[in-house]
Every structure is written in C-alpha cells, then in structure tokens.
Simulated scan of single mutants.
Amino acid sequence: MTARRSRHRSAAYAALALGLAGSLALTGCKSHSSKKSKTSKTSSSSSYKSKKRRIIGGGAAAAGAGTAASRRVPDCFPSTYKVTFSQQSGPDSHVTVKFKNTTSRDCKLYNAPLLRFNNAKNPLPLLQGTPGHLDGTRLTVPAHGYAYAVIPTNTAAAKGTEQKSVAIDFMGISASSVTHGPVTVNFAEKRLHVSVGKTKVTNWMSSIHGAQLAAGVGK
C-alpha cells in the first residue's frame, strides 16, 4: 500500500508541475503579446504624429512660398492707352503725364518717365536730378490706380513749340537702366496740342497735386 501511495503522489505532483509550467508559459506568452501590441500601437501613433507634423510643416512652407510670391510686385508696362498727356495753360502752365495701371495687380514705377519729344536724341532732363544705383525712387501703383509726372511750361522757353510726338521709356532704379519701352504717342492722331521747350520732368508721384508741387506749379 505504501508503494502504491507513493506512486500516486508522484504522478499527482508531476501532473501539478506540468499544469503550473503550462500556465506560466501561457502567462508569459500573453505578457509578451501584450507588450508587443503596446509597442506596435506606440510606434504607429508616433509614426502618425510624425507624418502629421510633416504634412502641417509642408503646408505652412507652401503657404509661406505663396505669400512671398504674392508680395512680388512686377514692373509697370507703358502703352499708348496707359500713358496720356494733357496741357494746362495760364501762369502755372504745365504738361501732365498720367499713367494708369489697367491691371488687377499692383505694379512699380522707378524715378521718372524718359520722354523724347519729336524723336529727340536725348530724353527730357529730370527735375529731381539723375538717380544713381542707390538713391533711385520707387513708386508702387495700386491695381487700377494712377501715377503722375509734371513738366513745367510756365515760361516762354519752357513752353517752346508744339510737339508732334513723344517716345516714352520707363526708367529702372538707375539712370542707366530702362525697364520697359519705348512706346510712341502721336499727338496729331490723338488731336492733342502739347508744347514743350527747354524744361524738365518730375519723378512719378501718387497724386497730381504732389507732382505739381514738385514742378513748382502747384499751390
């Protein structure tokens, strides 16, 4: 009887040990699987956040590039319907040169218009002096806005004789550079009477009054 009991107890202990080993193995498996799942979720979340940051960053960079591009202001272009001339008589006689920006976008003008009346070799001198590379002026003309320059003709020499035509160039930042032109306005075709002699032209101004004051014919 003693030997049988001993064998039964040994078998029971062996079964119990086998069961515990299986339980521990299963627990370890589950723990490893859980850790792996958590690591996978963390990695996936981190990857998603990283991608999200890249997308947001890329969008911001694209928006910045678009803003920078929209801030670039192109040069204004002359044409016979954009540049018009008119002459005022009296003690403050002067010729007004008016430019209209016919586009829906701002454009920029530099210094003064270069005007060659009757195919003259040299343009009309600038009233405010010849600009250099560093002291040139720039005027931004808003969409559908205007810019003005004035030629004083309030003396006999300044008024001179009636002109037939004028060629117009748009100056660059310095006196030696030209951005666009020339275009020619035929005064006879447009039925205009413009008399210009030994005189000068002002820089482009944003208002007619400002241009008149610069020419010494405004009050």
Rank of each mutant, 00 (worst) to 15 (best):
S44F: 09
C76T: 05
S104Y: 10
S37I: 10
A167N: 07
G58H: 02
V178C: 11
S195I: 07
P131A: 10
A156G: 06
M1Q: 11
Q128R: 03
R5Y: 13
A214E: 00
H32F: 08
A215W: 08
P123M: 02
L139R: 09
Y48R: 12
Q212S: 03
H8A: 11
L109T: 01
H32A: 07
G90Q: 09
T137F: 04
V95F: 04
T140L: 05
P131H: 12
V95W: 06
K41C: 06
G160K: 02
A167F: 04
P182F: 09
N111T: 02
M171D: 01
R105S: 14
P125I: 04
K82F: 01
P74G: 15
S33P: 03
H180T: 13
L115E: 03
S70E: 12
A211H: 08
E189G: 15
R138A: 14
S89Q: 09
A120K: 01
P131D: 13
D92F: 05
H180N: 11
S50P: 08
I151G: 04
A149M: 03
T137I: 04
V95G: 00
R9H: 10
N101R: 01
R116L: 04
A60N: 08
M171A: 14
N154P: 11
A12Y: 10
V196L: 12
A120F: 03
R138P: 05
D169S: 10
T84Q: 01
T202F: 04
G90Y: 11
T96D: 00
K38G: 08
D92G: 08
T67G: 05
M205V: 07
A120H: 02
G197V: 12
Y110K: 03
T42D: 14
T140V: 15
S177K: 15
N119H: 10
R191Y: 12
Q163A: 07
A158V: 02
V185D: 00
V97D: 04
A11G: 05
S46D: 07
S31L: 15
K82Q: 02
H8Q: 14
T2C: 07
K190L: 03
A112C: 04
A214P: 00
P131W: 11
A147R: 00
H32V: 07
A68N: 10
S89N: 00
T140Y: 04
L134T: 09
A21I: 09
P123C: 03
G64C: 11
S31R: 13
V185S: 00
Y148Q: 03
N111P: 06
H94T: 09
A167I: 05
H180E: 15
K38L: 15
H32W: 08
S23R: 06
